[in-house]
Amino acid sequence: MLAGRVLHQNIFVAGLRLSKALLKLEVNRRHAAIYRKFMSMPGMGGKKSKKKEYYGRKLVGYSMEQMFNVVSDVENYTSFVPFCKKSDVFLKLPTRMRANLEIGFPPVVERYTSDVTLERPTLVRAECTEGKLFDHLQTVWKFSPGMADNQQTCIIDFFVSFEFRSLLHSQLAHFFFNELVRQMENAFIQEVANRYGKASVKSRMLKNVHFNS
């Protein structure tokens, strides 16, 4: 009778373990199905989705000098640049700047060193160095004369290019990239308005291209 009871218990334990194993397999199967669906969405998977780039050209109602002053004001990025949590400048020269930055927009948080090239009042170029998430990150602002009869205008050429080390982060970037770039570009122009007042003319897009490579 004791042997029968032990046998019954062993069968019960074995059945319980089998049930748990089957449940785990079902959960894994469902997760795999969700992942396959995620990967099959337009623009997901493959090498083309890893690198994201944006180029825009815009006429604004502020001078080249005014735009340059705001874009090159890296130490104050935390006060007006979306998702910028830290901006500590540790090297500042007339033509070069280095700063430790931290950006955070779910699910990405990155701390890196930004090497900034300055050519007053025509160029601000920043490149990520010593970062963990990005293989490559570059932003370029170029400023050129605007309307011939209005010195308080200029043309902005704005370029952003980045590539994550992680394929997963690259795939997630597919969803937020365009909105992130739009917010960042608008934040700089809004900061110029806060500092220098109303624009002399209404901003208008001259060229706007989103593309992957």
Results as ranks from 00 to 15, higher is better:
121 P>A: 13
97 M>A: 08
17 R>T: 13
17 R>K: 07
80 F>R: 01
84 C>I: 01
41 M>D: 13
130 E>T: 01
109 V>Y: 11
86 K>D: 00
48 K>T: 12
144 S>L: 03
174 H>T: 15
137 L>F: 09
90 F>S: 02
6 V>T: 11
177 F>D: 05
26 E>Y: 08
125 R>F: 07
142 K>I: 04
97 M>N: 07
152 Q>N: 14
6 V>D: 15
47 K>N: 10
81 V>N: 02
12 F>L: 15
107 P>D: 08
31 H>C: 07
151 Q>Y: 11
175 F>R: 04
100 N>W: 13
182 R>A: 12
203 S>N: 03
142 K>M: 10
142 K>A: 10
16 L>D: 13
133 L>G: 07
1 M>H: 07
176 F>D: 01
120 R>W: 07
107 P>V: 08
121 P>N: 13
166 S>F: 12
102 E>N: 14
18 L>A: 14
126 A>T: 05
108 V>A: 04
126 A>Y: 00
17 R>A: 14
107 P>C: 14
127 E>Q: 11
210 H>W: 07
25 L>T: 04
102 E>D: 13
184 M>A: 11
7 L>E: 05
115 D>P: 11
209 V>S: 03
144 S>A: 10
47 K>I: 02
76 N>Y: 01
187 A>G: 06
188 F>H: 02
112 Y>V: 05
79 S>D: 06
36 R>Q: 11
88 D>L: 11
161 S>D: 12
150 N>I: 07
113 T>R: 08
147 M>T: 09
194 N>D: 10
174 H>C: 15
130 E>A: 10
29 R>H: 11
186 N>I: 15
202 K>Q: 15
35 Y>K: 14
174 H>M: 15
12 F>D: 12
157 D>H: 10
34 I>R: 05
